[in-house]
Design a protein around this nucleic acid. Sequence first.
DNA 1: CTAACGTTTGTCCAATCGGTCAAAAATTGC
DNA 2: GCAATTTTTGACCGATTGGACAAACGTTAG
Lengths: 210, 210
Amino acid sequence: MDQAARKPRTRIQIEKRELILEAALEIFAQHGFRGATIDQIADAAGMSKPNLLYYFKSKDDIHRTLIQRLLDTWLAPLREIDDIGDPVTELRSYIRRKLEMARDYPRESRLFANEILQGAPRVLPMLEGELKSLVDEKVQVIRGWMRAGRIARTDPYHLIFAIWATTQHYADFDVQVRAVLGPARDGEGRFEDAARFLEQLFVEGLRVKG
Amino acid sequence: MDQAARKPRTRIQIEKRELILEAALEIFAQHGFRGATIDQIADAAGMSKPNLLYYFKSKDDIHRTLIQRLLDTWLAPLREIDDIGDPVTELRSYIRRKLEMARDYPRESRLFANEILQGAPRVLPMLEGELKSLVDEKVQVIRGWMRAGRIARTDPYHLIFAIWATTQHYADFDVQVRAVLGPARDGEGRFEDAARFLEQLFVEGLRVKG
DNA sequence: CTAACGTTTGTCCAATCGGTCAAAAATTGC
DNA sequence: GCAATTTTTGACCGATTGGACAAACGTTAG
């Protein structure tokens, strides 16, 4: 009777909501919010449209739930950056974690990319609040490393942007990457090659001179 | 009588088609193909929907025209890479040109990003054909530089991907970049900072070791 | 068995979608 | 001027959209 608005109770509700979110992630990631239809999601989840709307009260509700859930795991790698460890090791494993996420959660990456491309109508407050705070905090850590002469001096914000861009590229632009590399280099070795390249690029690019 | 199918003749047709394409670029870049409506585009172009459809026979027709036009200018910077010049200079100016395009043509970048994100349904043949050929060709140039010991040995494909990703990031994820940098750093200096950072990253990252 | 509750579905709706069409209005060629 | 042509528009159409609803179905506790 509560329409599953706040807290799902029965086991069926928990399972079905999960099923719907899984299907919706697939559809939203591929077609964007407006491009996706409730019927498509219901089909992919193996249920009728009214049945789906019994578990989520609107299309927007599903999307919002997905975005919210995504953000928790999305920022985890950045949170893990620690100013106690070795700077190069810290950055290297941050890059590796981000690349692993692009490999293991490409749909989440594309969902997020779609949202940002459309002007971030649903997550702008989070970007300006939580995300900015977290980045500002890690920028201070990186600045500390630079002041200590442990990595080359550069703009920490743009360093973070570059890591985001290069790693997420393999999820968001997967089709293009595949097309350019061609069938010969289409195996899973792609990610190992990418990891090796990015590691070299950032480690050498941040090496202290002289 | 020819419905402007092949070649526009009158001056009005040329002007109005241009007006429509300009409006459509704005709308498509923001909402994607399915998210955009003919009415929105017609509104933005200051004309009625049937009038718009007098100049383009369908929504798909407009989109296809935009994509086709985009690709010509999009690949121009890559074409300009020359194996005669100094490798570092060549790569540096390629990065700068790509970054300028992200700054000056963000809508084109987002239009392209939307297309790729949705699986490149309209440009996949071009990616696998024309784009792959061009990249393959430039990869050979870069390999030559590496063999000659003029830049560090690494994967040329992923080098190109990294340049694409980092530069286009400033157009496609503009909202996020702005949000993270905050109002204090929101001026046009952003692109100068980005240019400096990327130049350092790639030049140092590709420097030949000892 | 049965009453209460949770789940599922068929049917329906108003709004919006891409696109058509015929006729009006504006422009052009002579 | 006038007729031919190009341009613009209002009205309309079938299809699809997100969502509502009540009735039917399933499940479970007593």
